[in-house]
Design a protein around this nucleic acid. Structure first.
Lengths: 129, 129
DNA sequence: TTATCTGTATTACTATCATAGTACAGTAGT
DNA sequence: ACTACTGTACTATGATAGTAATACAGATAA
């Protein structure tokens, strides 16, 4: 379901948050649908319940989900329409990409060129989430 | 010279490292050339000398510079060639980036546009320096 | 030698993150 | 009422990262 890379520099709660957002905006999780309970998801992917709670708290702050005490956490009706948040995630992705590429010593032109070559042809193929 | 965004989530030493690498691989800093001393650069851009030292240490580990106690830090003779050895890693980075962006539902044009926007600042900065 | 540059090393403070444990509060079925 | 689920809140601990303050050591010129 959700995969966590414990060696990553990206915090666990952040990795989980991004994956859930992708599921929401891509329709894997539908409006009103209930997410796994905090304790259930925590034991499923072997992380601490507090970390899942933190993820859900952030998702609620961002408007993707609504949590109801005693009931669970549900995808907000407007969750999928949060284009601005999707854009923000994309910006984070881009920042990360540029940062790492710059760390490798590449300049802006080389990064653009590399991405351009990679994108030639298809894009639908690479949906390995 | 070098600009630091203290509000950024990217560590100061990392921001500085990227800018120096760009200067080295783009030829703004030539082989054998001496970098500013730790304390000099620190006071120039108003950061702690330890942070500059950390940047220089990382640059030396990566092979971009060589430091000599009492003398200074100098661009390695092979510094500019280091970028060619990292093409493979860069391709992996690009694959990962494209996959995630595609997972967000973005098409090739949107990805290119987003990256282009993100890189504008870098390009302008390099030209002005 | 002395003074003043240079980089290096050590230590410490702070913030963030992940985890753990515990307790509390709302909901629903029995 | 009882039970078993839900989310929430709070404190504490250990690890790590980033930054900072200070002291140490090599190089060089006066």
């Amino acid at each position: 379901m959700y995969s966590i890379d414990s060696r990553s520099a990206v915090p666990v709660y952040e990795q989980l948050k991004r994956q859930i957002i992708i599921h929401i905006v891509s329709g894997v999780l539908n409006d009103g649908e209930k997410l796994p309970s905090i304790r259930e998801l925590a034991s499923a992917i072997l992380i601490n319940p507090n970390t899942v709670a933190k993820t859900y708290r952030h998702l609620e702050t961002d408007g993707f989900v609504t949590s109801r005490k005693g009931l669970g956490v549900f995808v907000s009706a407007s969750g999928r329409e949060l284009q601005s948040n999707r854009t923000e995630i994309f910006k984070e992705l881009t920042d990360e990409y540029v940062s790492k590429a710059a760390g490798l010593g590449l300049n802006a032109d080389e990064i653009m060129k590399g991405l351009s070559e990679r994108l030639k042809g298809e894009i639908e193929h690479d949906k390995n989430e």
